[in-house]
Design a protein around this nucleic acid. Structure first.
Lengths: 183, 183
DNA sequence: GGCATTGAGCTAACTACATTAGCTTAATGG
DNA sequence: CCATTAAGCTAATGTAGTTAGCTCAATGCC
């Protein structure tokens, strides 16, 4: 085993993320990250400031990943289809990485990385001629509903797994109609 | 200080709940509950099986409280007003007790206490002539959207506090319309 | 090439917490 | 009045986060 493991903050965060995916939110401990990195626990402090800091870094990566996926999903799509694409992207991210849901509702960190996701949503809403405060309300409606569905699904919060796709399709339909009709 | 503190499982859970309300989800520790009860930590094991058990008990109380409030909110109300009342009740519970939000998406315990809340929702939906699988989809739409909004709000997930009432009013409007129009 | 500086990693030690084992004793009921 | 039960205790163990301070490998400068 080499004296220098060549760790970086980024590698630590990547390891943390894979631990979250396999062991859940509560499974993320510095001890486990250190073990995965082949390093003693206190050594991690050379790269991150502690567990809260690591959590915040992981949260940023998660949010960035979701934002990227969402951004790509709406390329070349507009109107109702863009709304559906947005919602599908958000949900599918949490279906793929259910343990990451907890990082999407964290207390506001120093600099808010949610702005980027909001920007994508607002861009789509502009296709509905929704702007300014109207667009903010619409974005909240959109985010609330899709976040609610996806995080309940990720946590196993729905009784039955059956027909979840159909439920989600209907939810998207309701939202699309609501936004179109300017409720 | 009397030799017997006269603790019961119920009192332990009540103390735990008030700690959650004041110190947050992560602030709930056996050590803190014991201190509040005027008892040594291991003594709690005479009443609850451990921290996971205590959490589950707290989750049940939270869900029961929400269910009660929701049930009362829809007494003597029907149709669109009932939907709005339902949504308002859910949200206002989390506005009042934001730290309890985390207990509303827990992995399914042994016996599922969410059935009661679902029953209330389904009763309201019957006022829309929504039954069977249609009602299940509608209930999920309702719960997803209100839970998403309320838990994002509770976690400070929205950038600005201003206009949250208006945003929620619009969300309710969208959902009511969607359910009415059978999307 | 030698040497000073830097910083990555280490061990040791401390804290907080959950949990288990086993003791003590107050309350209760026959 | 005594036997039983159970509520509370102390002691001890294990895990985790964190801090302090040491060591030495890598780097760059002379």
């Amino acid at each position: 085993m080499p004296r220098r493991a060549g760790l970086t903050a980024q590698k630590v965060v990547e390891l943390a993320l894979s631990i979250v995916d396999s062991a859940g939110l509560d499974g993320l401990t510095l001890a486990r990250v250190a073990e995965a990195a082949g390093v003693a626990t206190p050594s991690l402090y050379k790269h991150v400031a502690g567990l809260p800091d690591l959590r915040e870094r992981v949260a940023r990566v998660v949010l960035a990943g979701l934002t990227d996926r969402t951004r790509e999903a709406v390329i070349g799509v507009s109107g109702d289809d863009a709304i559906r694409a947005l919602m599908d992207a958000y949900r599918s991210y949490l279906v793929e990485f259910p343990n990451r849901a907890g990082f999407l509702i964290s207390p506001p960190p120093t600099v808010d990385p949610r702005e980027d996701l909001l920007a994508v949503v607002l861009a789509v809403l502009r296709g509905y001629r929704l702007e300014g405060s109207e667009a903010i309300h619409a974005a909240r409606i959109l985010r609330s509903s899709v976040h609610g569905f996806a995080s309940l699904e990720a946590a196993g919060g729905f009784g039955y797994r059956e027909d979840l796709d159909e439920s989600f399709r209907r939810l998207a339909g309701v939202i699309v109609m609501g936004l179109r009709e300017r409720v």
